[in-house]
């Protein structure tokens, strides 16, 4: 598990990698929140493309970051969750709370999206 942060003006992207569970979420949360508080962020993007596993702890992670980003005057979005993670997100209805984007879509030519079981 790790999180890599990239700051671009008022945009912060957190690249999450590895498994997200109750054990690993706490560390990710602390790192993202520190960067959120230290900078004036309008858009926080949680990039899930490198996540290998996620249970509902990941939903808590998104909900919490969305809440904090809002409190600090910004918003949070989720990018590129693999198919099996999308399922957990769908159950949670997190899509109603924050935008889920596919940043890789425009550069793709075929329909062979990684994690392609998603309809």
């Amino acid at each position: 598990m790790s999180v890599e942060l990239k700051l671009d003006g008022d945009k912060l992207t957190a690249y999450l990698t590895g498994d997200i569970d109750h054990h690993t979420a706490a560390g990710m949360r602390a790192e993202i929140d520190r960067a959120l508080r230290q900078n004036s962020i309008k858009i926080l993007t949680l990039d899930f493309s490198g996540v290998t596993f996620m249970d509902s702890s990941g939903i808590g992670l998104v909900m919490g970051r969305q809440k904090l980003a809002c409190e600090l005057g910004g918003r949070c979005r989720v990018a590129d969750p693999p198919a099996y993670i999308s399922k957990v997100m769908k159950i949670s209805g997190i899509g109603r709370l924050c935008e889920i984007v596919d940043t890789r879509a425009p550069v793709r030519t075929g329909s062979h999206r990684a994690g392609g079981e998603e309809q």
């Binding site: 509902s56 808590g60 919490g64």
Partner: peptide, 15 residues
Amino acid sequence: EEERAGLGFAVMESF
């Protein structure tokens, strides 16, 4: 406070 989403059983049920 620990950011538990309250979805554990919902996920178990769905999966």
